Amino acid sequence: MALYSNTGTLTVTPIFDFAQSLEFMRGFSPTSDEQIVTNTSLTKAIMLGERCIAFRVEDAGSVEAPMVRYTLFSEEPLDEAIQKKAVEQISFFLSLQDDLKSFYAIAQQDEDFAPVLLRLYGLRQVKFLTLCEIACWSVLIQHRAMPIARKMKYALLERYGGSITVEGHTYRAFPAFEQLGEASEAEFADTIKNARSAHYLYEVVQALSRLDEHFLRTAPYDEAEATLRAIKGIGPWSANFILLRGLGRMERLAADMKPLQDARKRIYQPEVTLEQLQLRYGQYIGYWSFYLRNAS
């Protein structure tokens, strides 16, 4: 069927290299089957309430004067409110408003880290696309191999998500809280074939569907973390993971410390402690860890 399309450009805070974002998404296992990444563009689908739309983002600027061009694809015309919501979500997903100048100023004075910065110059964190997706993934991936978690995630996507075909390719969108909030625990168990995970999935979906995402993005970190940890199925690791990789809270380190420590040892001498690095990078320690782990 013929699709409607809307196009425009997204404002981006310098410094930004869209090629770095594409390279990150090319190797990001949790969503590897849900999008098409080329040398110049990313195309994937998203649920906005009950609407499934696809979006394509392409580079339209330079690293120092960045701009991203977008195209929205839909089966029905999109009103201004939906277009605005889509554009805001895409911008947040790609972290286009993150200002890394202060982080870069610190990193350039770090002789051990400077080569990492040079290699990944312009990289921004690409988040999970929605809070619902990362919350569900945080349940599915716990104590489970990646291929099994991905199979469970795809089962949720297939049963509850949306789909849209663009230029002959069908893109599937992970369901939103509007879809998953109607599912029972028994339905989740039937879908993912694991009763324990289905129980936690149900609790997390029900609780988060009633929470204000803006609060989680902007509240003092400890308050936001405590709110998440009060939800059955979300522990210390999951809360930190959701805040960091889903909501862009970069002021804390990732809770999964072993890979980070291993990466640190490849860059720094043993006498350089993590505590020292936390003091050096302050509120940008999350970005420091994001770069460090991507470099390795």
Rank of each mutant, 00 (worst) to 15 (best):
G122S: 12
G122R: 05
L123C: 10
L123W: 00
R124L: 15
V126Q: 11
V126N: 10
V126G: 11
K127S: 15
K127W: 02
F128D: 04
L131Y: 01
L131V: 09
C132L: 08
C132K: 04
E133L: 10
I134N: 00
A135D: 05
W137S: 03
W137H: 01
L140R: 03
I141N: 03
Q142P: 00
H143S: 13
R144C: 09
A145G: 11
M146T: 12
P147M: 13
I148L: 13
I148P: 00
A149Y: 00
K151Y: 03
M152W: 00
M152T: 06
M152G: 05
M152V: 09
M152D: 08
K153I: 07
E158Y: 08
Y160A: 13
Y160C: 10
G161K: 01
G162A: 13
G162F: 05
S163T: 13
S163W: 06
I164Q: 04
T165P: 02
G168F: 04
G168E: 14
H169D: 09
T170C: 12
T170L: 10
T170E: 15
Y171G: 05
Y171K: 03
A173I: 09
F177M: 10
F177P: 01
F177S: 08
E178T: 07
Q179C: 11
Q179V: 12
Q179W: 04
G181E: 09
G181P: 04
E182T: 12
S184P: 03
S184L: 05
E185H: 00
A186P: 02
E187M: 07
F188S: 04
A189Q: 06
A189T: 06
A189R: 04
D190V: 06
T191E: 05
T191G: 06
K193N: 12
N194M: 12
A195W: 01
A195R: 15
L201W: 00
V205E: 03
A207K: 04
L208G: 07
S209P: 02
S209Y: 00
R210H: 11
R210V: 09
R210E: 13
E213R: 10
H214K: 15
L216N: 02
R217T: 07
T218K: 13
T218V: 08
P220S: 11
Y221R: 14
D222E: 15
E223W: 03
E223T: 15
E225G: 02
E225H: 06
A226Y: 02
T227N: 11
L228R: 04
R229H: 05
R229I: 14
K232Q: 15
G233N: 04
W237N: 08
W237L: 09
A239L: 06
F241N: 05
F241W: 04
F241L: 12
I242E: 04
L243N: 07
L243T: 04
L244Q: 07
L244W: 02
R245P: 00
R245M: 15
G248H: 08
G248A: 13
